[in-house]
């Protein structure tokens, strides 16, 4: 989901620094390792910019997983059957787990968990724009699994080969679990489209209509507006361009929509035999930048929910730590 962070970073000016001869030499050795396809581990030397870029991307990826629990958590108590409720609980728990794998990977780069939490809660750090849309009906939950997790998988699979090994290892774990997320969503929609009433089918179509464009926005700005840092590509932090991934997603998803019996809200969508791909309409980029900039339908609500959870949990964190310290002192005295 989550390479959006990279594109925002590219908009910022890079500080010019004078490098020492020793640093230049180490940088050369580092680049040679990357070229050889070597993985970089936490304690290995790495250029500052590499470290910063990764901290930024991994932590924002982690924030996306954590905030991503909110739109779906909204439906846990209202899931239509016990089976769907158990599935949704498992899925939301997975998102929490993914957030934790990723925070841990970011911490290997020398940032602390509290620093990252603070950046999220203060609104300084971004998370994927998709989670600023509301989940209005039960069908939204199925559509999130199918489209949102589908887009996330498309984005995340290439990251399993990221040059930074702790991130790559976390991504392998995440990708293994995401496939369940997408399949359960699609199956839930399929159940409604095959056995549902006319109203339930209309509800699925309505959810697809609302989530289609935000899902396409998950891949970030168009390539022409996203000067792909060549360096990030080389470092394998980003492996495929935004537009390439978006195209791949559309091509994979349209046949799935046909099987499901729904349409996507894009009059310009058309198979292009010459390109062996679908042509599709222009994304509303003004909306994209509005949501990224904090003015989406749920930005404030999401941040307020995270802040409340953090504040309400403060006494638990403090009590657990006080208890642990007391036990440690007792043990030492014994």
């Amino acid at each position: 989901m989550y390479t959006q962070a990279m594109d925002l970073m590219a908009r910022e000016a890079k500080p010019k620094v004078v490098k020492s001869a020793e640093d230049l030499q180490r940088e050369e050795a580092f680049e040679a390792r990357i070229d050889a396809g070597d993985f970089i581990e936490a304690k290995d030397w790495m250029p500052d910019h590499y470290r910063k870029t990764l901290v930024r991307q991994i932590s924002q990826h982690a924030h996306s997983e954590i905030v991503g629990m909110l739109p779906e958590g909204n439906w846990i108590t209202r899931a239509p059957t016990l089976k769907r409720k158990a599935i949704l609980l498992a899925k939301v728990q997975d998102e929490g787990g993914h957030g934790l794998y990723l925070y841990a990977a970011a911490e290997t780069l020398g940032t602390s968990r509290d620093e990252m939490t603070e950046a999220l809660l203060s609104g300084k750090a971004k998370y994927s724009s998709i989670f600023n849309y509301p989940t209005l009906t039960w069908a939204d939950i199925g559509v999130i699994g199918w489209l949102v997790d589908g887009a996330a998988i498309m984005n995340q699979v290439p990251l399993c080969r990221c040059s930074y090994a702790p991130y790559a290892r976390a991504m392998i774990r995440v990708c293994r679990e995401e496939s369940f997320h997408q399949r359960q969503g699609y199956e839930s929609l399929l159940t409604m489209m095959t056995h549902g009433t006319a109203a339930q089918k209309a509800m699925v179509q309505d959810a697809v209509n609302r989530w289609w464009w935000p899902s396409l926005m998950m891949f970030g700005p168009a390539d022409k507006d996203s000067p792909n840092s060549e360096q990030s590509m080389r470092w394998g932090i980003k492996r495929v361009t935004n537009d390439q991934l978006r195209q791949k997603f559309v091509d994979a998803t349209i046949p799935q929509a046909e099987i499901l019996g729904v349409t996507v809200p894009d009059p310009a969508l058309k198979w292009n035999a010459a390109r062996d791909s679908y042509d599709f309409g222009e994304i509303d980029w003004a909306e994209f930048w509005r949501v990224v900039g904090g003015e989406g339908p749920c930005n404030r609500e999401r941040l307020a929910a995270r802040n409340k959870a953090w504040d309400d949990g403060a006494w638990v964190r403090d009590a657990a730590l006080a208890h642990a310290r007391k036990q440690a002192v007792k043990q030492e005295a014994a």
């Binding site: 841990a104 968990r113 774990r173 964190r317 657990a320 730590l321 208890h323 642990a324 036990q327």
Partner: peptide, 23 residues
């Protein structure tokens, strides 16, 4: 398989179960 934050060892084991062995 990874790392996590916990107040003490008992909590660390419990959290490790939830974070790293859900399947």
């Amino acid at each position: 398989c990874g790392s996590l934050h916990a107040a003490d060892s008992a909590m660390a084991i419990q959290m490790a179960r939830d974070v790293y062995t859900r399947r």
